[in-house]
Design a protein around this nucleic acid. Structure first.
Lengths: 138, 138
DNA sequence: GACAAATGATACCATTGTGGTATCATTATG
DNA sequence: CATAATGATACCACAATGGTATCATTTGTC
C-alpha cells in the first residue's frame, strides 16, 4: 500500500550514472548508443534525461555524426544536490502540506521547525557529494 | 514541473490534526461530524483516515448513535513517526532506486551510506515528537 | 550534395500514488 | 424501530513518474 519515501528517483539515478560514466572517460564525447550499451538504460528515456542535463547546462552537446555529450564542468564541480534539484526540485520538507490554505499554527509551528532542521541536515550531507567523489567512492 | 520532496502528506497531516483534537479534549468520544466542523477536512476522506487509524490501533471506536473515536493510548505515547509510517510507509531513503535490479556498486555504495545517515537522522528527529508534544508546542 | 549519424524538441502513453467521493452494511442508543 | 454513528469497500480524478515515438535539425564523411 504505502510507498516508502524516496530521496533519489530514477531520473536522478540514471542522470548520475551517465555523468559518472562521462567523468570516468575524462576526454571526448559520449554518444547515446555508447551509454545505452554500458548503462542499460532505455534509450529514449536516457535521451530525454541527457537533454534535460544539457538544457540545465550540466552537459555540452555536439550534434551530427560523431556527436554526443560531455561534462560542462569538472566532475568535482558537479554536485549530486544539483542533479537532484534538476529532476526533483529543491528539497523543501518544511513546506506545509497545506500550501496556500491556512495552517493553524502559522509561523511558530513546532513541527515545521523540526522539518527545517532535517532539511538543513539533508542539504549539508548531500552538498559535498560530487560526481568526482562518486567515481572514487568517497 | 518537478515536485519538491515531502515528508508529510495530507493523510498524515489530517490524521495528526484529528489526533491532536482528541488529545486536547482528553475525555469522551469524538464523532466525525464534530471533527469535520472543527478541522474542515472533507468528511468522507476524514472517515477513511480515522478508519485506518482504528485498524492500526491508534484509535478506539464505538459504533452506533452517540459513537465516535478516542485515542487508544495516552497522547505522549503516540509518535508522529508512527502516524507517518501508517500513511506513508517507513522512511527508507537508502533503498536503491533500482530495487530488484542489480546496482553496480552493490554493498559498499558510498551514496547509500550517506542516505543511511540521513535516514537515521530523520528518524531521530521525528521519534521524540508525540501528539502530546504537538499540542503543547514543544 | 547525399546520406548517415547524431542531438533537439515535443507529444504521447501507461502505471501508480494521492486526494477525495459514494454506497451499503453493521451496530448501538433512545 | 428509527436514527446516528462507524466498518468496509469500491470507485473516481488528477498529477507524478517512468517510458516511448516521431519529426526536425545539425554535422561529418563519402
Amino acid at each position: 500500500m504505502a510507498m516508502s519515501i524516496r530521496l533519489i528517483n530514477r531520473n536522478t539515478d540514471y542522470a548520475v550514472r551517465a555523468l559518472c560514466y562521462m567523468a570516468r572517460k575524462k576526454e571526448g564525447l559520449t554518444s547515446v548508443p555508447e551509454l545505452v550499451k554500458s548503462l542499460r538504460i532505455p534509450r529514449p528515456f536516457l535521451r530525454k534525461i541527457l537533454q534535460v542535463l544539457h538544457n540545465k547546462e550540466l552537459l555540452i552537446s555536439q550534434k551530427g555524426a560523431g556527436g554526443g555529450f560531455k561534462l560542462a564542468r569538472e566532475p568535482k564541480k558537479i554536485s549530486l544536490l544539483e542533479v537532484v534539484k534538476v529532476f526533483q526540485g529543491p528539497i523543501k520538507l518544511s513546506e506545509c502540506v497545506l500550501q496556500k490554505e491556512a495552517c493553524p499554527n502559522k509561523k511558530n509551528c513546532f513541527l515545521r521547525r523540526r522539518l527545517g532542521t532535517i532539511e538543513q541536515f539533508i542539504n549539508i550531507q548531500l552538498k559535498p557529494i560530487t560526481i568526482e567523489g562518486m567515481i572514487h567512492g568517497n
